[in-house]
Design a binder for these strands. Structure first.
Lengths: 343, 343
DNA sequence: CTGAAAGCGCTTACAG
DNA sequence: CTGAAAGCGCTTACAG
């Protein structure tokens, strides 16, 4: 049985890909010299020889085999990234930022969605690690068991956006607490006194604490609180729930843009006007937030800077465990009650 | 210089990862037998021996090296995917669907965003292909040169969602033409007579033809037409443009949900009511579309089915070049003028 | 049922 | 400046 694929260009079928040996033979040099030329070292090569090698590479359409290179060198010029769900705009943006930062350094990014692999326990993490990764970016909330596994992998790890940073590794995040506090304080400046909270699982989230404290400092009691997952659906459900108790709130602080997306849809369907009936302030600063109706006031996370720092930390192994907190920026748009700049 | 990283668990620092040889020695067998056990073949292994090997694997925390395996076998159990921008919800959904489909078959997906790598010409495609891929899913519009490169890679290729399918390979798409036609016909059923079009680059898009023909069959002339990229920003700009000539239209057919997202924001800002002033019908059926205000009427692409078919085509090399067209489904929500089901 | 050995395509220390 | 050779960690045909 031949492996010639009918899907590939007929002109190429049956023709095997050229290897370094083919190139060496064609150029009349050793395979070592081919490597020296292609890698610009570690040995110098005479210009004339180099030209011959390059000609051979072009003539044979030679493409180096990254797998063989990775096996020999021990690293694959590839970093792994674990996210809960890459469809979530916040993670989509983060993955993209990591991809750009990695790309600038000649690295490829291998992304694993844990939501589509949770069924096989933590084996997706091992599977990821088997690829000779240069490092691993974890943007997912891991169980203690998974954390232990990640630590034991022998690969550099950086945690991003964890609620509970780990003292054993580099963690990069934003100042959830003060970001949340600023947003809630802003709602209070608009005269809101019954500010609800919509967010994630109990106890782990600094944003919830920021919400309580901002209220407390203004002498206000916490409003209704709805916790769930960070999905649009959960936001929608929270919106329905809050709409049903609309007399108990005049504003909501939402822990993620994705949640706000669903929440605002539910509020609209219930006939509530934003911000007149309920003001909304959110968290993340996704690019979509600007296009919601009304445009969403949200606490921006500096995703590009965080991605850059994450890659740097991954590559610079001399750096010990540390927690790096990036500051957030409150983006004031209309959902909180601010007026459009142009009018 | 030691390579022990301060980022890894101190308990592991200095300890090198176990290899198949270590496991073999520990279990008192040959490395071949370790392979037979781990791969369930190709040779049978006595139960007692197998147990010893498994014990050794556990004791040494052995994890097979995927790179070495890929080098030896010639394939990496990995498929590549090229998308223009994984942040776009439509592509994010598609990547996710491909990831799930691949995951079910034990494959990993390596995603390349061409927008963050366009600068280096088509070298990102070669770089992708150097990883011993089992196949390549192309969800990006390629130049003729890039197409030629992809074809010459010697790797199975399937094109998804191309405006212009390629007769040389398997192409998987939806029936853009009839999907668009159905959406526009639906707007006409709502009594709209001046239906605008917002879409992509001139000439390449069957959705534009579907729009014209639906109008033509109803004896209606084409409304205003705005073309650009498929970004939210382009949709916003298109919305501003159409709002400025609001007297020339009473509906818009938009070629993608992402575009609709920006368009609706611009229409709202201009003080227009959807669907009262302008009805909107869109294309893609992203999960977000349901949460827009008002909920977006959109032509759904069966992304999961398409992803499954794409992976099947990639793996089944006996299948020749073909074009597979999936049917679309019109999802009627409120933006076209339909009333909510519940009221 | 088990093992010795070749080889996948690279890189690089070593020798010239 | 160039090359012969070892070796990265696997898989598998071949032999027992």
């Amino acid at each position: 049985m031949t492996t010639a694929s009918p899907l590939s260009d007929p002109r190429d079928s049956g023709r095997k890909a050229a290897t370094r040996t083919d190139v060496a033979r064609y150029a009349g040099v050793s395979s070592a010299v081919v490597s020296y030329v292609l890698n610009n070292g570690p040995k110098p090569v005479a210009p004339a020889t180099k030209a011959r090698v390059l000609d051979a590479v072009a003539a044979l359409h030679y493409r180096p085999n990254a797998t063989a290179r990775a096996l020999k060198r021990g690293v694959a010029d590839m970093i792994g990234m674990i996210v809960p769900d890459s469809r979530n705009p916040f993670f989509a943006g983060f993955v993209h930022a990591i991809d750009r930062a990695a790309s600038r350094r000649g690295l490829t990014v291998l992304v694993i969605n844990s939501d589509s692999r949770r069924e096989d326990g933590s084996s997706h993490i091992s599977a990821l690690a088997s690829h000779q990764l240069d490092g691993l970016v974890v943007a997912d909330t891991l169980t203690e068991e998974e954390r232990a596994l990640v630590m034991s992998l022998g690969v550099n790890v950086v945690l991003v956006n964890q609620f509970r940073p780990d003292s054993r590794v580099v963690s990069i995040g934003v100042d959830f607490y003060n970001g949340a506090k600023e947003a809630v304080a802003h709602l209070i400046e608009h005269g809101r006194e019954r500010v609800a909270f919509v967010g994630g699982d109990p106890g782990v989230d600094e944003r919830e604490r920021g919400w309580i404290d901002a209220l407390g400092e203004a002498g206000l009691p916490p409003g209704p609180r709805v916790r769930g997952s960070f999905s649009v659906e959960a936001g929608y459900a929270a919106g329905q729930k809050l709409a049903a108790q609309r007399d108990q709130l005049d504003a909501v602080f939402v822990a993620s843009d994705q949640l706000s997306f669903g929440l605002m849809a539910a509020l609209h369907e219930a006939g509530l006007t934003i911000p007149a009936d309920v003001a909304v302030a959110s968290f993340d600063g996704s690019s979509e937030s600007r296009y919601l109706c009304p445009p969403l006031t949200t606490v921006r996370q500096p995703v590009d800077e965080m991605a850059d720092a994450a890659i740097d930390a991954l590559l610079d192994t001399s750096r010990g465990a540390a927690y790096v907190d990036f500051p957030t920026t409150l983006i004031r748009r209309q959902s909180c009650g601010c007026h459009p700049a142009s009018s």
